[in-house]
Design a binder for these strands. Structure first.
Lengths: 147, 147
DNA sequence: CTTGATGCAAAGGATTTGCACAAAT
DNA sequence: ATTTGTGCAAATCCTTTGCATCAAG
């Protein structure tokens, strides 16, 4: 078992839940694809191994609550990506309104600026910001050139 | 008819669509509540006037496309708020993970900072940012005091 | 008139849930 | 053994769509 999976196992077991074959398989699948993936896509990748769609949903919900996964919504579907131990502090995404492709905005300086802003919000609005979903919407260069 | 409604009417008619009683009523309802409101909530406020739920959804989709409304998703439901002529440039929201209340982050300086960051993203990632959905997640002061 | 809009009910898609069975500690 | 997880199918919730009718320009 990979080091990653070992860490997730620890988190899951420490929460009182059992670390089952199904959960491991689902985690491995997400690790492998290494991009935003939906419950249904995961299901299609694992259904030959006798895993039900409900199990996939239950696992994804559980992992999200435990902070292992990050859920982002596009139209009416949830997509998931690994959250902790993935080297990311904050999630900033850009979605192209035409091709619907999602870009990860991973520039370190930008992310740091965003975090500063979150701190400003905390001070000005008397709240505690624990997470930020930032979705920028616009036109990617590829779709821009097609016009 | 209020000045606001007149402006929306213009936008709707210029897009080639008809400005019907139903659309007017839905717009007036959103204007009145002056907060995030779901299709179902709107429907409950207008159903006694013989408007179907489908009409509400069709109007909301149309208004969103025309840029009159802004759609934000919470859990599996869409909420809408007036976008243009509402004095807002960019939409930054804070949601409390406990009470699920949504705060509008309307501080002018903060918003301007966010816009600057969007411009940085445009330059660094070769995209055109047209809109930004920023949802901060955390704990509001009220829920924080209850612990 | 002609075209687009509406209301209703049915369909659709994503997600959740009830239940009997299986597997983990 | 006991408790939690699973697979399946049915149920649920939000949203969209087909169709006959209605209303706006």
């Amino acid at each position: 078992m990979s080091e990653m999976i070992e860490r997730y196992r620890k988190i899951i077991e420490e929460s009182g839940q059992k670390f089952t074959k199904q959960k491991q398989l689902i985690l491995e699948t997400i690790l492998e694809v290494n991009r935003h993936i939906s419950a249904n896509e995961i299901f299609n990748l694992v259904k030959n191994k006798n895993i039900g769609l409900a199990t996939v949903y239950r696992a994804l919900n559980s992992f999200t609550e435990l902070g292992i996964l990050k859920r982002i919504k596009i139209d009416n579907t949830s997509y998931y990506e690994l959250k902790i131990y993935s080297g990311k502090v904050l999630h900033v995404h850009f979605i192209c309104k035409y091709c619907k492709n999602i870009l990860d905005i991973n520039d370190k300086n930008l992310i740091l600026e965003y975090i500063k802003l979150n701190n400003l919000v905390e001070n000005n609005f008397d709240v505690e910001v624990q997470d930020a979903d930032i979705m920028l919407v616009g036109v990617c260069s590829s779709c821009s050139n097609k016009k």
